[in-house]
Design a protein around this nucleic acid. Sequence first.
DNA 1: ATCAAAGTACGACTGCCGTCAAACTTTGAT
DNA 2: ATCAAAGTTTGACGGCAGTCGTACTTTGAT
Lengths: 105, 105
Amino acid sequence: MGRTPPHPEVSQFGLQQVLEALVDPVRRSIVTQLDAAGADIKCGAFDMAVSKSTATHHFKVLREAGLIRQHYVGTSRMNTLRRAEMDEAFPGLLDALTSPQAQAR
Amino acid sequence: MGRTPPHPEVSQFGLQQVLEALVDPVRRSIVTQLDAAGADIKCGAFDMAVSKSTATHHFKVLREAGLIRQHYVGTSRMNTLRRAEMDEAFPGLLDALTSPQAQAR
DNA sequence: ATCAAAGTACGACTGCCGTCAAACTTTGAT
DNA sequence: ATCAAAGTTTGACGGCAGTCGTACTTTGAT
C-alpha cells in the first residue's frame, strides 16, 4: 500500500487551502479531537458519522493542507496534528478555532 | 429600498457561518481591505473583480455572518467591519487572518 | 495458507455555491 | 422632470465538494 503519503512542508502551506480544510465541520472536528487529545489518533478511533471512504477523503484533505501528518502502524494509520508547524505558518489560527470560546458556538 | 438590512447580534454569531463567510477569497479580501483601511468603505469602492450582483451577494453573506455592518449614505451603502464584536465572539480569529504572516500566503 | 480488520481507490450521484445578465428601485444631481 | 449612479432582486447556469457503495490491497492473527 502507499507507504507514507506525501506531506507538504511548512513553506508550502497556503491560507486558502487551510481554510478550505477547516471550514468542513467533520474535518474541523478531527482537528479538534486531535488537539484535545494531545496525542496521535488512528483513523478508526475518531468520533465521526461518515462512511470509511468519506473519512479517507477528509484525512487526505487535512493532510494535503498540512494540518495533519499520517504514518502507518501495522494496518492502522496514525494521525498527528502538526500544531507547531501550523502555528508557525498561521499564528493564532488554530488557537482561535480550538478555544473553548469558539467551540461553544 | 430596504432601509437598514437585518444584522445578527453577537450572541448569534456562529463559527460555522463565520468560517463559511471567510473561506471565500473575494469575501476575505473585503474583510482585509476594511481592516487595513481602518475605516468604512462603500460597496463600490472595493477592489474586486466580480459583477455588481455577485458583490451584493458577498456583502450579504458577510453581513449575515456578523462580519460587517451596512447602512446607507445617500445612494451608497457603507460597510463597517464589526471588529470588536467578532473579537468578542472569536478571540484571535480575525487577527490570525489579517496578520501580515497569514496574508503572505 | 486463510481470514478478518483497516483503509484506499474509483465511480457515481446530489446539492449547493459562486457567477452573471437583465430588469428594477431608490437617490441625488442637472 | 429627467437622468445617471449605486445597489438589489431574480433566475439561470456550471462546477465542484461531500457523500456513499463496491471492489481492492495490505497487514496481522489464527
